[in-house]
Amino acid sequence: MSGLIKSSIARKVVMALSGLFLVIFLVLHVTINLASVVSPDFFNEASHFMGYNPLVQYLMQPILIIGVIVHFVMGFGLELQNKRARGISYVKYSGAANAPWVSRNMIYSGLVILAFLGLHFYDFWVHEMTYKYIEMNPENPTRYYAETVEKFAPFWRTIIYVISFVLLSLHLWHGFSSSFQSMGVNNKYTPAIKSFTKIFAVVVPLAFVFIALYHHLNPITH
């Protein structure tokens, strides 16, 4: 088992598993967010449940944060190791001749997503923690919709979110199906996995873009 921890294959499997875990989280996230467009009341209910359910707060949330950290730290470590493995750089390297741009630049799409997560955490998570544990405000199950819509009022934030979702799409375009290959799945189902990956990589980020633009264009007027 000690060999497993140190090996390049095991590290790739950790990247794949943490990535797939984050993909599942994305599905949950986009589903709840879509509710903010369809039914503000349901969105409030779901957000309140997520914000105050002990299982979500004290088990799922830490697991999610660990998942993000593992995926980022491992990805960054692998990238550094990969750079070292080349040694001297080529004078001419035609990467585009044999591999798509998205697959060769996962570190850059990943870094943009990470930077976005910093803003996203500041916008929502830090706000939540401050509201609940520092300001010790009472529970208010109807505040979430207004708070979310308000966040998308500034044009600059909406644009940053939209750009980040485009990079998320590129990251998923390669990463989702790639994770199956890393775990040893390459069989008759692989073409279907690749097709599903392309649909998923477009539909989910597009839904996030739609939500951000919808709230920016439909502010709450008092």
């Binding site: 140190k6 090996s7 390049s8 590290r11 790739k12 692998l78 190791q81 990969n82 070292r84 493995a85 080349r86 990467g95 044999n98 591999a99 798509p100 697959s103 060769r104 996962m106 390669h174 790639s178 290959q181 890393s182």
Partner: peptide
């Protein structure tokens, strides 16, 4: 393979 200092596969397919 790892000891020799090769990099990690990122499934680019190159």
């Amino acid at each position: 393979m790892d000891l020799e200092g090769f990099g990690n596969c990122t499934n680019t397919g190159a």
